[in-house]
Amino acid sequence: MSKVKILVVEDEMVIADNICLILEDLGYEVLEPAINYEEALETIEAERPDMAILDIQLGGKKDGVDLAWTIKEQYDFPFIFLTSNADAGTIERVKKLSPPAYLVKPFKKDDLYTSVEIALHNYAESKGSKKSIDEDLLIKDAIFVKEKNLFHKIKLENIRYLKSDHVYIEVYTTDGQKHLIRGSLTDFSERLPKNFYRTHRSFTINVDHMDAINSAYVMIDGEQIPIGKNYRDDLLKKIRVE
């Protein structure tokens, strides 16, 4: 499980460094801050952040609102606007973006933490993604799991399989870890990509990590995952096993 990766775009380096220090103290992974539109795009392309904090007023021809439109249309991840004062025209431009959260200067540590939390939730809702499992969110290619009041990221590609455990779901990952999240395996499995297949009422597998299969079980990294009779025919058909 990795930390939520955040990019700060702010042309006043003292403010940018302060934001980065606070985010690191809160437990997030923080990228090297960008000071303008062009630098921000280079970092986004190279690092693929999970979220960005954008100052509206940036040096250069394009400002934070322009950058937000590019993120929304080309990269599709949540962002927070950082601002102190803005004219009516800028506010109108911002409103059209329906940003997941705002952060107003000057701000406190708790304000920053709250804005990040709200941005993740609001972004998920804007995409029609309901809260999948209590305080955990399924967004694009990852599960954002809340542990000790902070979201952490489990990339879907790193999940080997999931197992139902009463009102919880056990998530087994490629690094040998097991993460426990609250929710229904049935509801959650319906929201996963096509490479996740239900093999049993208690198991869902990531077929990309499947090593072998027969009529009774699937092998993943030396572990036998059972195949229930109600799922066998559909599973074998999906993975084109005759």
Rank of each mutant, 00 (worst) to 15 (best):
T174Y: 01
D187K: 14
D175I: 02
N158A: 04
H179S: 07
V171F: 03
A216H: 14
H200S: 06
V171C: 04
G176D: 03
T173P: 04
D165Y: 07
Q177P: 00
D165S: 13
N230P: 06
N195A: 01
N158K: 14
K194N: 15
V207M: 01
T199R: 08
E157N: 13
I227E: 04
K194H: 12
E157V: 14
S184D: 15
A212E: 15
E170F: 01
Y172M: 11
R160M: 12
D208F: 02
L192F: 03
Y168H: 10
H200M: 06
T186P: 00
S184I: 06
R160I: 02
N206A: 09
N214F: 05
R198I: 02
V167M: 03
T173S: 14
G222N: 09
I205G: 12
S164A: 15
M219W: 02
V171Q: 02
Y161W: 15
S189T: 10
I181H: 07
D211Q: 14
Y197I: 10
R198A: 03
E223H: 06
S202H: 07
R160L: 13
Y217G: 00
T186F: 09
Y217T: 09
D221E: 14
N230T: 15
H209K: 11
N206D: 09
I220C: 03
F196T: 06
K163W: 03
T199W: 05
T199P: 10
V167L: 00
P226S: 07
G228E: 03
D211H: 14
S215H: 02
F188A: 02
K229E: 12
R201V: 13
I225D: 08
K163P: 00
I227F: 01
K194V: 12
M210E: 10
H166I: 14
P226V: 09
L192C: 04
T186M: 06
R160K: 15
K163H: 07
K194F: 10
E190D: 12
